[in-house]
Design a protein around this nucleic acid. Structure first.
Length: 280
DNA sequence: TCTCAGGGGCGAT
DNA sequence: ATCGCCCCTGAG
């Protein structure tokens, strides 16, 4: 396998949390699928060993996906300004933010609506097994996430067979729009507000899912998704009024963490998610 | 078996 | 801005 020197990169916290839903740990290796490849990773001391399939040695993809050239530690030192975030950083040391494919991330988080992480992972695998290409690696069968055009061309009834419920309609319609508008190439050129506006115009995407795509695919460090857990952090730990609007909360968080709310939000999310509701 | 809540979004009001 | 509804699943 190929190697990258990444001593502080926490693979399980980064891959198995709420950013991506296609990773599994099998026999000490992490296997994750996208719409066109399977990635295999393993930590060995200060290195991450890696390989891609079916095309091997796709260094450009792996370094972009893992954001290996991004200086996370400097940013983490900047946001470490109170006891809550400090405990969160300590708990998930080495947690990073991924930069995933745009269409895949958009479809992932349309599926996420009103489901927990386990449920999202289940839906993703069911869709992949039903509509995705099979790829055999290390003697095991993996299924790639279905191509956007396959979802766009499936019927709503077919999609509903994967028990994604009312999300089937949103998944299909957004897939069609993604292809028609060729958003994959144009959205990369937009600033945060432009991209947010376009995302929220898609079926099944409002504030929260838009922020997931902005944060986990488009690389904006100045926003973060506020789900029920993140809102609990803000109200229970930071004393915000639960009646504050979504946008007001998001802007408060980004302001408080000096334009690094993506990282702060992710650490706090993992922190409170593992502890359950905190009594203060 | 039943209840509850889960990294929400839509449409009507 | 708020509310009922959407569909399914794992946890308790």
């Amino acid at each position: 396998m190929n190697q990258l020197y990444l001593p502080n990169y926490n693979l399980p916290a980064t891959l198995l949390g709420g950013q991506s839903f296609s990773w599994d740990e099998i026999n000490g290796y992490f296997y994750g699928f996208t719409q066109d490849k399977l990635i295999k990773l393993k930590r060995v001391n200060d290195y991450i060993n890696w390989q891609t399939y079916p095309e091997n040695d796709d260094l450009e993809f792996v370094t972009k996906y893992l954001q290996t050239s991004y200086d996370f530690d400097t940013k983490i030192n900047k946001i470490n300004k109170d006891k809550h975030i400090s405990a969160a950083i300590k708990q998930s040391a080495g947690l990073r933010i991924l930069k995933q494919d745009f269409e895949l991330t958009t479809l992932f988080f349309i599926l996420s609506a009103f489901k927990n992480i386990k449920g999202i992972r289940h839906s993703v695998r069911k869709l992949s097994k039903q509509f995705g290409e099979k790829i055999v690696v290390d003697g095991m069968d993996f299924y790639l996430f279905p191509k956007t055009e396959v979802i766009a061309n499936a019927t709503e009834e077919e999609l509903r067979e994967t028990s994604i419920g009312y999300r089937a309609k949103f998944l299909k319609r957004t897939s069609q729009i993604l292809l028609e508008q060729n958003l994959n190439t144009t959205i990369e050129l937009m600033n945060e507000e432009e991209a947010r506006k376009v995302l929220k115009s898609l079926p099944g995407i409002a504030d929260k899912v838009a922020d997931c795509v902005l944060t986990f695919s488009l690389g904006f460090s100045t926003t973060t998704p506020l789900d029920v857990w993140a809102k609990r952090v803000l109200t229970d730990l930071y004393g915000l009024d639960p009646k504050m609007s979504y946008t007001a909360m998001r802007e408060w968080l980004n302001n408080y963490f000096d334009n690094n709310s993506a990282l702060a939000g992710q650490y706090l999310f993992e922190y409170i998610r593992k502890q359950g509701r905190l009594e203060v």
